[in-house]
């Protein structure tokens, strides 16, 4: 199986879907002539031409709305946000227009648009450029929210997103673009709403996705090696729809649950997961759910501060130890 970078897997997904369906096009800032701010769309202009790989002005509300309108008549736009921090100037389009047209029209119009780009804290980008937007968008009925962790998931989930008839928020991370992994060739699609067990274990469930999942896997490795604590890492892969049964199954087995996210704790995904786990696993839990999230402050610039604010391997490991009453 070919080994691809995360960004190459995304490119392969988009290119395959564009070859397959002429209604698919890619639009965003610097996607064409610049070859992508993070080189995700490198070479695509050459293959597909400027009608289908389209540079935009810095005008997020304009071009995200364009994508929604085009989707209402059956096109399948891929709208790239250079970062989802910039999607916030298009918030009305993303949360009011995309997810509500189907409902408000009584099902007469569908909006098969994909909004994709990076989310989460990068390399010292400070407060405005470091949004982890999954809680903001998962909150909204009508949207689907996808967070791939591996290159294979990047491809399989993006292809599914492009073929999905609903608006999809597809969250990537800058620090993961260079990650490599085996990626199946050709028509490889992963279903939404199906979690992946990234690591099996019976001592404590960790629910984590994307960047947080990579941190969680490193923590699980360390915990097993150093303390013999065997964590089960569940990656939901899609936060809406959420594979709750997979999480419940795991927690019923382990009796403990830790959530990890790069977003904020207040009204975060972890808060929702904790509520769900408490509702569905109350009698199976031997402790309350422990949440790991970024500290509840705007993201600082200074490196040593940033490293303390974003969940680290150590912070996840400490959370697991606390959850399972480990006294080492």
């Amino acid at each position: 199986m070919p080994v691809l970078q995360f960004r190459e897997a995304l490119r392969e997904a988009m290119s395959e879907e564009m070859r397959r369906n002429p209604d698919v096009f890619l639009m965003g800032e610097e996607v064409a002539e610049y070859n992508g701010a993070y080189k995700v769309s490198e070479g695509m202009l050459k293959e597909f031409g400027p009608q289908r790989v389209v540079d935009t002005p810095i005008s997020e509300a304009g071009f995200s709305g364009l994508g929604i309108g085009a989707a209402m008549v059956g096109m399948r736009p891929i709208i790239e946000f250079m970062t989802f921090s910039f999607s916030l100037v298009a918030f009305d389009q993303v949360v009011n227009n995309a997810p509500k047209m189907s409902y408000m029209s009584g099902g007469q119009f569908k909006v098969p648009v994909v909004f994709r780009g990076i989310s989460g804290p990068g390399q010292q980008l400070a407060a405005t450029h470091s949004w982890s937007v999954e809680a903001l968008y998962t909150h909204v009925p009508g949207l689907k929210v996808v967070v791939p962790t591996t290159p294979a998931e990047a491809k399989g989930l993006l292809k599914t997103a492009i073929r999905d008839d609903d608006p999809v928020i597809f969250l990537e991370n800058e620090s993961m673009y260079g990650n490599k992994g085996e990626v199946p060739e050709g028509d490889f699609l992963l279903p939404f709403g199906v979690a992946d067990v990234k690591r099996e274990g019976r001592d404590c469930t960790i629910v984590a996705w994307g960047q947080g999942c990579i941190t969680a896997l490193a923590a699980a490795e360390q915990l097993e090696k150093e303390h013999g604590i065997r964590c089960e890492v569940i990656d939901p892969r899609t936060l809406r729809p959420l594979d709750l049964p997979a999480i419940v199954r795991s927690v019923k087995k382990t009796g403990y649950c830790v959530t990890v996210e790069t977003g904020y704790p207040t009204c975060g995904i972890g808060a929702e997961l904790a509520a769900l786990v408490h509702e569905h696993c109350f009698d199976d839990l031997d402790n309350h759910v422990v949440r790991v999230a970024s500290l509840d402050v705007p993201m600082p610039y200074s490196k040593p501060l940033l490293q303390q604010v974003v969940p680290s391997v150590q912070r996840v490991a400490d959370a697991v130890k606390k959850a399972v009453y480990f006294k080492g």
């Binding site: 709403g193 899609t238 729809p241």
Partner: peptide, 10 residues
């Protein structure tokens, strides 16, 4: 009509 392709625990 919340979703055109509804599935999962919506």
């Amino acid at each position: 009509d919340v979703y055109a392709m509804p599935f999962g625990p919506y």
